[in-house]
Design a protein around this nucleic acid. Sequence first.
DNA 1: GATTGTGAATTATTTCACAGCT
DNA 2: AGCTGTGAAATAATTCACAATC
Lengths: 239, 239
Amino acid sequence: MGCESIHKRVDPFGPTSRSQPADPFDVPSPDRKISESTVRRLSEYLRSLEALQRSGAEMASSGELARRAGTTAAQVRKDLSAFGSFGKRGLGYPVAPLIGNLEEILGLTREWRVALLGAGRIGAALHAYPFFRERGFRIVAIFDDDRDKIGLRWGDTPIRHIDELEAVLAREAVEIVILTVPAAPAPTLADRVAKAGVGAILNFAPARLEMPSHVAVNEVNLAMELELLSFALTRGESR
Amino acid sequence: MGCESIHKRVDPFGPTSRSQPADPFDVPSPDRKISESTVRRLSEYLRSLEALQRSGAEMASSGELARRAGTTAAQVRKDLSAFGSFGKRGLGYPVAPLIGNLEEILGLTREWRVALLGAGRIGAALHAYPFFRERGFRIVAIFDDDRDKIGLRWGDTPIRHIDELEAVLAREAVEIVILTVPAAPAPTLADRVAKAGVGAILNFAPARLEMPSHVAVNEVNLAMELELLSFALTRGESR
DNA sequence: GATTGTGAATTATTTCACAGCT
DNA sequence: AGCTGTGAAATAATTCACAATC
């Protein structure tokens, strides 16, 4: 989208790589291309499975998962089957192992080193969002260009000046940058981030970033989300 | 979508209604169903056109719009042609009038009365986001359940207790609710909001809302957006 | 008996290609 | 000559339906 996405252009859903040999949740890399909508649903399944686990369930059918994730049973099975055979016919999917499989597929079994570019309100909200830590997204650097903010700390992490961007991204081995700056500086900053070797950008600035295809970009446009509702209300009024 | 897209379930993209007779930007309501991805792109075109207008352009070709919005010329023409013939063959689309047309299509020519449900950091960031005002999304009510916050004001708007939800939604004629509460209370609150007659919900809580089909729901899941990048990095590493 | 995994059928979306204006 | 608007073709995503398995 979501879907898109629209916006949301994550290019490198390209073909396969080799999976590590001695992994408790060895997931076969699929040969067919995985669509963004499939990955979004996998993330929903993971959320649903965690809820199921909390409520004590050990097995879950594709129908149950579909109900919780807001899709169809066939869709659930198709999505999962792209990565392997995780279910038992007649019984469903084992909850705990499937959580492990999905974490493996989504790359959530390791820690990701994240930098926040823009220490404004959205940055602050994201920094405080407990989920990020829980899922292994660790904010290791924060940047801003406001001299008044430089040197302040959010938690343990000092706010550094944008001038130090390249040096700190390298030193901290940052892999993902979250861009929460205004639209105007966003494209230039994104270029610098990409040149510094960062492989993924989550962009909250209402600006389109043109990036080399090896950089994954995901756009979150809050304006657009409201406009979508405005459109729905405008057309839906008669129903 | 995104776009495809999971999450982001805005149902009522259903068929047509009558358009008002004496409108400066009378846009024919299309008969075919409009997909969410199309609406998302329309929003991008609007953004691109505004940038073009600022740089003094009077006409824009589908190719130029496509380049800026990150899609193809054919896609731009298809998307726009679903709502009418806005271009001039040989010349392109007139920038200013098309902005008007898109604002009309997206329902941005009127003011929308919005309530914020949850006065935490995400709520604060959204409240401060200047775009909302500019586009006519006016926050007329703020709710929280934290007694310490009740009575505080954000700008002109007092933070009210959730107990007053139904009364204030009705009194303020709220049309859109932005949910920035934790996952646990989200479904119950969404039900109350829907029962109170609100037609659209923008949900930031990581919880699936099951709503009657006349309520448009749009989910923004920040967790998922990062997981998408994690997936891309995990599979893309070899490229 | 229930439920998965998956080709085949269906439906949706995007791209092509070109006739028709300006 | 340049560019739109749009059917037709191609591609992608979803749903169906059923054999295989527990």
